[in-house]
Simulated scan of single mutants.
Amino acid sequence: MSTIAFELPTMTCGHCVKAVTAAIQTVDKQAQVVIDLPTHQVRVDTGASQAQLAQALKEAGYEPA
């Protein structure tokens, strides 16, 4: 497992947090997701690649900065 971080400027509310978490967990059901909403930061402990997670986030409407 590795820790991957993303900045998601368009993540602004509780609904966004749920959508981002769900998108990440479609790639890795066991991923541990930690979100800091005020700073738009997401940290993921996962076995998936950064590219896989970034693609899932894009498909959910959250473009990593």
Rank of each mutant, 00 (worst) to 15 (best):
T3I: 15
I4D: 02
I4S: 01
A5L: 06
A5Q: 14
A5D: 11
P9T: 00
T12D: 07
C13D: 13
G14V: 05
H15D: 01
C16Q: 07
C16V: 04
K18C: 00
T21A: 14
T21Y: 10
T21H: 09
A22E: 12
Q25N: 02
T26K: 15
V27G: 04
D28C: 07
D28W: 11
A31Q: 14
A31T: 12
Q32M: 10
Q32C: 02
V33M: 14
I35H: 12
D36H: 13
L37S: 08
P38V: 02
T39A: 06
T39K: 03
Q41I: 02
R43K: 15
V44H: 10
D45K: 15
T46C: 07
G47D: 15
A48P: 09
S49A: 12
S49C: 11
Q52I: 06
L53K: 06
A56H: 06
A56Q: 04
A56T: 02
A56F: 03
L57D: 00
L57H: 02
K58P: 00
K58A: 10
K58R: 15
G61E: 05
Y62P: 00
Y62T: 00
P64H: 08
P64K: 08
P64R: 06
P64E: 08
P64A: 07
A65K: 14
A65I: 07
